[in-house]
């Protein structure tokens, strides 16, 4: 598992925003960090992918 998700760095203690009265659980937060990283990464990739594709598509008027 550690090899699969090198992007997730474990550091310091688990801290929570002050407004939370609910314990969100470490497991769920780690998962969302992964999703967040993928989403940010994915957004960047899609921008480049769109640029890349535009090189091969003829411009339409």
């Amino acid at each position: 598992m550690k090899i699969v998700f090198p992007a997730v760095a474990f550091s310091a203690a688990f801290t929570l925003p002050a407004y939370a009265y609910l314990d969100p659980g470490t497991g769920s937060m780690v998962l969302q960090a992964i999703i967040g990283a993928i989403a940010v990464g994915g957004a960047a990739v899609s921008v480049y992918w769109a640029k890349f594709k535009s090189l091969f598509t003829s411009r339409k008027k």
């Binding site: 310091a12 937060m29 998962l31 992964i34 999703i35 940010v40």
Partner: peptide, 24 residues
């Protein structure tokens, strides 16, 4: 995965993690 990463009292695997500086 949430079960794997879940910190709990019976687990000997310590998972330290912070949401600080991270965004969803």
């Amino acid at each position: 995965l949430p079960a794997y990463f879940q910190k709990n009292t019976t687990s000997d695997r310590e998972v330290s993690f912070t949401t600080e500086g991270r965004r969803l």
